[in-house]
């Protein structure tokens, strides 16, 4: 009896001490983590082998660790620098080596590396990896297109990626129009014409088909007009000031109508453009 009472007392004392020790340990651990939390990544050659057949769950764990790390930094409004950007890039690279189809990881890296760290090349590198593996998904190509338009100001490449994205089954229908419209900003009507022709072959929806046909018609007109501008230059050794000059010199009979209701104009850089911007003015 005496032994049971003394043992019970010891148990209570141990439990209370355990609570305080644990509290102290938590504080010490937090300090330790603050100083060195996840400042390392194991190369995927090692992680992949160590993960054995549990690559999926290991990739989930590593991704969770990375998102928690950055989430905590943002909540506490702590500054993040190049070191953290490198960590994010390396970590997501490993996560996506373990599971090359993990879209959440690619998207997280893209958002972080572009908007927070301005490392567009690294973000694009990961998106290209996503594009290579997620062949059924339009999103990697779509985000690559966006990064090229918005961050790199490379409309040509951006348009090309959007076109690729719009060809993937399941891609939103607006991508087709967007890609074709954006292509106007660079000297590349021809790829847009080819692209729209291809899309038209597989488009069943009547409304969409009409829309694409109208866009294609406009692009063909603009392409022809530009060729006429160059023909004018070849004949008179000078560029025309306006499209009316082409009519005056008999190169074309009249300026064609814009199917979208706008007007074709000749810009200072001698590119043909339309005031409608290929947006149909709905009544």
């Amino acid at each position: 009896m005496k032994q049971t009472i003394s043992l019970s007392c010891f148990l209570i004392i141990s439990m209370v001490s355990c609570f305080f020790v644990q509290q102290n340990l938590s504080e010490k651990r937090e300090e330790l983590l603050k100083a060195s939390y996840m400042a390392y990544t194991l190369p995927s050659k090692i992680t992949g082998v160590l993960a054995l057949e549990f690559k999926g769950i290991v990739s989930d764990f590593l991704f969770l660790k990375t998102t928690t790390f950055f989430g905590d930094k943002f909540i506490k409004q702590e500054s993040v620098g190049e070191k953290q950007a490198d960590y994010a890039y390396e970590s997501i690279k490993i996560v996506t080596d373990l599971d090359p189809w993990f879209w959440d990881a690619y998207l997280f890296a893209d958002m972080l590396l572009t908007w927070d760290f301005g490392q567009i090349d690294k973000a694009n590198e990961l998106l290209l990896k996503a594009k290579k593996n997620r062949t059924w998904d339009f999103k990697p190509a779509y985000y690559l297109g966006f990064n090229h338009f918005y961050f790199l100001k490379d409309n040509k490449k951006g348009s090309r990626f959007l076109m690729e994205a719009s060809k993937i089954p399941g891609a939103p229908s607006y991508l087709t129009s967007l890609a074709a419209r954006l292509s106007m900003y660079e000297n590349q009507y021809q790829p847009a014409i080819v692209f729209l022709n291809e899309i038209l072959k597989t488009t069943q929806n009547k409304g969409l088909k009409n829309e694409y046909e109208k866009r294609l018609k406009t692009l063909i007109i603009m392409d022809k007009l530009e060729k006429n501008v160059h023909a004018y230059h070849a004949a008179f050794n000078v560029f025309p000031e306006t499209l009316q000059d082409l009519v005056d010199k008999g190169i074309i009979e009249s300026i064609p109508d814009d199917p979208y209701g706008g007007q074709f104009v000749l810009l200072k850089n001698k590119r043909v453009y339309t005031t409608s911007k290929m947006i149909y003015k709905r009544k």
Binding site: F54, G56, I57, S59, D60, T68, W103, D104
Partner: peptide, 21 residues
């Protein structure tokens, strides 16, 4: 709940790993 979108992937990963383990 801790993940963004691919909840199907995470739940399948965990369940299949539990079976394998």
């Amino acid at each position: 709940n801790f993940f963004m979108r691919e909840l199907h992937k995470v739940s399948v990963d965990i369940n299949l790993s539990a079976i394998a383990f």
